[in-house]
């Protein structure tokens, strides 16, 4: 396994970035972007936060490419899962 950087600094920075993004999430909830866009903005911020956690707290950044491939493929798996279920709901309107 690759040696991890045990300096605390990057973790503290990520922590404060997460606090900042949480505040931003609350902030944009008061702004009306119009129907789909409010959701899009909120989800985009959440995606950035999740990526920070995965990259730094879960040490995927700096790991072997095998680890990165595993993470990427599980994300693709989850997307397929949601996509197929949501397609069913959407397609119930067809006739």
């Amino acid at each position: 396994m690759a040696e991890h950087n045990h300096s605390l600094k990057p973790y503290v920075m990520v922590l404060f970035a997460l606090f900042g993004l949480t505040a931003l999430t609350v902030g944009v909830a008061y702004v009306d972007f119009g129907h789909p866009w409010s959701d899009v903005v909120a989800l985009a911020i959440a995606l950035v936060k999740a990526s920070l956690v995965v990259a730094f707290f879960m040490h995927v950044k700096g790991s072997t490419s095998m680890v990165k491939i595993s993470v990427a493929s599980s994300i693709v798996g989850v997307l397929i899962f949601f996509m197929i279920i949501l397609t069913d709901y959407m397609a119930r309107g067809f006739s």
Binding site: I84, T87, D88, Y89, M90, A91, R92, F94, S95
Partner: peptide, 8 residues
């Protein structure tokens, strides 16, 4: 036959 859409 459980109410899944015909397309799916």
């Amino acid at each position: 036959v459980s109410g899944e859409s015909a397309y799916s």
